[in-house]
Design a binder for these strands. Structure first.
Lengths: 216, 216
DNA sequence: ATTACTTCTGTTGCATACATCATCATGTGG
DNA sequence: CCACATGATGATGTATGCAACAGAAGTAAT
């Protein structure tokens, strides 16, 4: 295996800690602090920070420090705007590339009773489903953009905690609607189902957010 | 005025030279070469390169050098896919925020006879028109993504040279169609006109590209 | 001629010292 | 008491030296 460069190592670790909210939104960091935490010099840290800044996960305040980007309702609005733009588009235009076996697998998985699944399982399943759909788009620029908002979405999820179980049940149902349309190769229907799913998801997410005092 | 940091200085200059194709697609650069050219140390250069790599304008080949990203037909396909996704969306959803005076100004400008304008003027006008439309989208992630493909588009334009004057005339006409629909606040019509314009533009661009041997 | 090995050169990766600047506490003169 | 200068502190910005590595070129044995 190729030895991983320190700058990549630092980049991945810092990113992970931001996404997992170990570094909470709004926290002030410093190169020195990170240097000690990872036992490397400032150089690879700086490299990592430069990239993270461009991804919007941090803001470098010249001569003052490094701020972990905060989360806001406006941010979440932008996330859903992009998901509503990209995901129905993916289903509509690249649905034909979905693998039939994979679709059937998902069909089974979303039929499992919720009690069999931990919250972690549910989110992981949800993620894999949406990832499969976005992976069908070959356009690397779209992928890159989606990856940015996906990171932010993960941070929101950590901050807001879990959905209600009613919402989880409905989510599975909406996913099944999308899959059923895909199996029938009804891409217009599948795309519409996706749009509906995202709108429902958006509503319930905002309900959750409005009860999360730290995010306004 | 705030003194510009060297890393920003280096970033802007290198970026400009890549976009203007002074550094041609596929060229191999090195930190040392750039260091000499700008009379700064490697540190700000490295910072700039790290950001440019993430923007996709260069690829850092570890221990070998820095390659200016090449251009390909696939790249151009991705550019138009995104423009076709974003620009009609902008007109449809944010057209209502367009400034009426600005629209009328554009209306006048696109009525000028072509002979009054240099190629530079024409491209600048075209750019400003599309920029106005994209600026109406408040979503910063969409803006960022669009900016990436816009940079690539500029590089293509430099490499392929100018359109035919028939195409330029038709371009102005298509722009006028969009503007007229906007003035009538017919956002569906304007969005359709935009889509048609981009498809026409795509066709003529690909004709041009197929006659540009360096890009395949 | 081919192969394997060695050496050499150019490149980035990394660590570190120093410069510069923003901020805040402190002290001083009015 | 306040306005303001001043210095301490801590942060990033920048320069630079050395290490590590990839690839090219040369060399010797087969």
């Amino acid at each position: 295996m190729q030895k991983e460069s320190l700058k990549l190592y630092a980049y991945n670790l810092i990113k992970e800690k931001i996404i997992s909210c170990e570094y909470m939104p709004g926290t002030l960091l410093s190169e020195e602090l990170l240097r000690e935490e990872f036992n490397v010099s400032r150089t690879p840290i700086r490299d990592a920070l430069s990239r993270l800044e461009q991804e919007g996960l941090i803001t470098i305040l010249p001569k003052r420090g490094i701020m972990v980007s905060s989360l806001s309702l406006g941010e979440m609005n932008m996330i859903f705007e992009i998901r509503l733009l990209f995901e129905p588009y993916a289903v509509m235009n690249y649905g034909y590339t979905f693998d039939g076996t994979t679709l059937l697998d998902f069909y089974q998985l979303f039929h499992q009773p919720l009690e069999n699944l931990s919250n972690q399982d549910i989110y992981s399943l949800d993620d894999r489903f949406h990832a499969m759909i976005m992976d069908s788009i070959p356009n690397t620029y779209i992928k890159q953009c989606y990856s940015l908002i996906h990171n932010q979405n993960l941070r929101f999820r950590v901050m807001t905690g879990n959905c209600t179980s009613e919402r989880l049940i409905r989510t599975h149902g909406e996913h099944l609607d999308i899959i059923k349309a895909c199996l029938k190769k009804d891409w217009v229907g599948a795309s519409d189902a996706m749009r509906k799913h995202l709108l429902e998801s958006k509503n319930s997410t905002f309900e959750l957010l409005l009860n999360t005092p730290k995010i306004k």
